[in-house]
Design a protein around this nucleic acid. Structure first.
Lengths: 250, 250
DNA sequence: CGGCGGCTTGATTCGAGTCAAGAACCGTGG
DNA sequence: CCACGGTTCTTGACTCGAATCAAGCCGCCG
């Protein structure tokens, strides 16, 4: 479980070593070699990748929290998935850039990313067939995430929200209890209205699961996991949502 | 758009030539060479692949209609995706057979399938790297299908049902107007109750979209597409849901 | 000619949306 | 340091879509 880079106490200063969680083991050096890290910080709410990029460039999230989302005809945002440090972004349009879905990758907190040009990535894949298989796996993991969301879509609202919070906790790192989302974000990810989310949050506060502060802060994770029927093992290391596992040198 | 094999007027008698819709073009012969077609017919309601198979064997659907589904704790079935002739089944657990999700592939009509052993498929991938890339693409298409279902999950019920019917029409073949599903199947795929599905069907019959018979038969596809806000192009050839395109030699 | 799976119908309940308005908070600039 | 504007959060009243429960019906298959 990766977590924010700072959490481990190490700083994001030296070269990255990414280790792909794949049957083949670590191939991160390949990616490391072609990763362009000059990209500056990205502010919350900014679009990291969208139709405008159309498959010419890809990114790896280095710090922060981002999501994949679309906006429907009414302008309502729908969040499909969250991305955490180490995740590969926007792979979905590597093979078929000309999709008519208007998918965007949006920063939910301040982020920093590394980028890779399409042709460079292509060449890397040719040099290292394992990388291709790893990307296949990444796509299958993505499919699994969406399937999981489809399952959640049929749960009662409180459980849906609780489960989302459990996921965030698990992915942000067990020690980080503040979840950097707004109630609006949670609404857009669960498909519930903001008003209803707010009422559920109050219920969670009454139950002693969330703190009474404005920020989303879990103070009783056991109770939360009960409400969510959350199985911590469903994110076990071999199946983590994160395609990449970041290790920082000094 | 593939359709039932019979529709084209050709019979499913001779050798198959599968053509993968991939940037690389036809690699179906590779699959054809390793496909075991001795498997007999499978009856409606039977499980084609599930936990019991655990990644040792994979299948290609040759005839009929199947789905990927799970059952939740109450025994309720949830259908994630439909499979049509030419689709590769159960690829989802090729890389990680030990998933704890109890996904099953179930025949929704009488089906026939061809099978491939895991190790044979693995060797085929090594021989032909393009096949690996094709499977990557297949996984991305699957992810897209699920994403589409997530979008639909927020639509009003009538539109959701109408869209599902449009998809079936498009995939079964434009000339096949009877959709071989039960109202129960539609309920499990849309996440609505059977009772509600029934009422929506009556509404669709009143609107002159469905015939008054017991079978699900579309008699006014234009009206149906309007209700569904269905974009026929969203299944355009390059992006079809079907991984494989079947061609039959007499 | 049962019987069972699927379809139909009605009555009732309830979860969650919508609308509307106000309060708390945050960043920015004077 | 405070005033202002824009988000975000909160609360209340009302509505409505869809679930559930409970029967009864149809039609096919053995």
């Amino acid at each position: 479980m990766t977590g924010m880079l700072k959490r481990s106490g190490r700083q994001f200063l030296g070269p990255l070593r990414e280790k792909l969680r794949s049957p083949g083991g670590a191939i991160g050096k390949e990616v490391d070699a072609v990763l362009n890290r000059t990209k500056p910080r990205i502010g919350r709410g900014e679009i990291i990748a969208g139709p405008a990029f159309s498959g010419k460039q890809f990114a790896v999230l280095l710090e922060g929290l981002a999501c994949m989302a679309t906006r429907n005809d009414n302008g309502a945002r729908q969040i499909y998935a969250f991305y955490y440090p180490g995740d590969f972004l926007a792979l979905h349009d590597f093979l078929r850039p000309e999709s008519r879905e208007h998918i965007e990758i949006e920063a939910l907190s301040n982020c920093s990313i590394g980028t890779i040009n399409r042709d460079i990535l292509e060449r890397a894949i040719q040099r290292r067939p394992m990388l291709g298989q790893a990307l296949w796996q990444a796509a299958m993991i993505e499919a699994r995430i969406f399937r999981q969301r489809l399952v959640m879509a049929r749960w009662p609202a409180l459980q849906r929200v609780a489960h989302l919070l459990c996921e965030q906790r698990a992915r942000l790192g067990a020690h980080e209890r503040v979840i950097p989302l707004t109630q609006i974000d949670v609404a857009d990810a669960t498909g519930l209205s903001v008003v209803h989310i707010n009422r559920l949050f109050q219920e969670l506060r009454q139950l002693g699961v969330l703190s009474k502060q404005r920020t989303i802060k879990v103070v009783n994770k056991e109770r939360l996991q009960e409400l969510a029927a959350f199985d911590p093992g469903y994110l076990d290391p071999g199946e983590a949502l994160s395609y990449w596992d970041l290790y920082i040198d000094d």
